[in-house]
């Protein structure tokens, strides 16, 4: 398995449930950690660093979230990126098909690998985990 340690950052708890189910249905054997906003996720990464643990392998990141949204998370992430022992693959998974959001994602090319539009399908998930 390519990704063992996965973060799902989304304020929608239904989406958390869906991801869990999709992983099981597609025989992808990972137990992701769920965060409801960007701040929680950033703190999750920092906690790992402080404990001397490895950062997550993969982050599925929503854009519209309270407190720290996806973009703000990416800004915070940029600041601590150099301290990480390895690269983290980040995918944006959002229901926003707004062109401003899609264009904005291009500003984060060195952080974000791809932009997936919700609804997320089993094929999307397989693609992410097989790449």
């Amino acid at each position: 398995m390519k990704f063992n340690d996965v973060f799902v950052v989304d304020d929608d708890k239904i989406f958390h449930f869906i991801i869990k189910k999709l992983l099981v249905h597609n025989n992808i054997n990972v137990t992701p950690k769920f965060f409801e906003n960007g701040l929680q996720a950033i703190e999750g990464i920092k906690t790992k660093l402080n404990k001397g643990e490895n950062p997550p392998d993969l982050i599925l990141l929503d854009i519209n979230m309270p407190i720290l949204d996806g973009w703000q998370f990416l800004e915070e992430f940029k600041a601590i990126k150099d301290k990480l022992s390895k690269e983290i693959i980040i995918y944006i998974v959002s229901s926003s098909d707004d062109s401003t959001d899609k264009n904005k994602a291009k500003n984060y090319q060195s952080e974000v690998k791809n932009y997936y539009l919700k609804p997320m399908t089993a094929d999307d998930l397989k693609e992410i985990f097989s790449n």
């Binding site: 919700k118 609804p119 089993a122």
Partner: peptide, 30 residues
Amino acid sequence: SHNLNSHTSNFKMLLDLVEEENDQNSIAEI
């Protein structure tokens, strides 16, 4: 577009799940 999208995509994903699900408890949860 944004607020309706987030709900409709949930519907789609949940319905996808329910089609593949056999376990009655899981179906009830969905």
